[in-house]
């Protein structure tokens, strides 16, 4: 039962990932792409938590923490760059 629900959760996360990826590839302008990138990284954090649950290892959560920090800083840098333009 739990395994089935975990399976369903990973399917939903994968579908969300693909939808955000479509917006990332398609996005009309740069800000759209950055928004999609932000959503992709947050979904990746969820994916890391799911992998940690499947493999049953707590060390993987450290990666999620590093990931959250770096993606946040990256989005800030890119947004400052885009805001300075024009």
């Amino acid at each position: 039962m739990v395994e089935g629900l975990l399976y369903l959760a990973s399917m939903l996360a994968g579908a969300a990932f693909l939808l955000a990826l479509y917006r990332f590839v398609q996005g009309p302008n740069a800000v759209d792409r950055v928004v999609a990138f932000d959503v992709l990284t947050v979904i990746s954090i969820t994916a890391i938590v799911l992998v940690a649950l499947v493999e049953n290892r707590i060390v993987y959560l450290d990666v999620a923490l590093v990931y959250a920090l770096l993606s946040f800083l990256g989005v800030i840098v890119i947004a400052r760059y885009l805001g300075k333009e024009t």
């Binding site: 039962m1 739990v2 990973s10 939903l12 996360a13 969300a16 939808l19 959503v39």
Partner: peptide
């Protein structure tokens, strides 16, 4: 365990809605 797995599915369902909204909304 069942409550935890249910919360997992609910959370990823919200993520899915977010991805859907990202594609349906008209402007930035």
């Amino acid at each position: 365990d069942l409550i935890g797995a249910g919360l997992l599915v609910l959370g990823t369902a919200f993520l899915f809605l977010g991805g859907l909204g990202l594609n349906r909304m008209p402007d930035v």
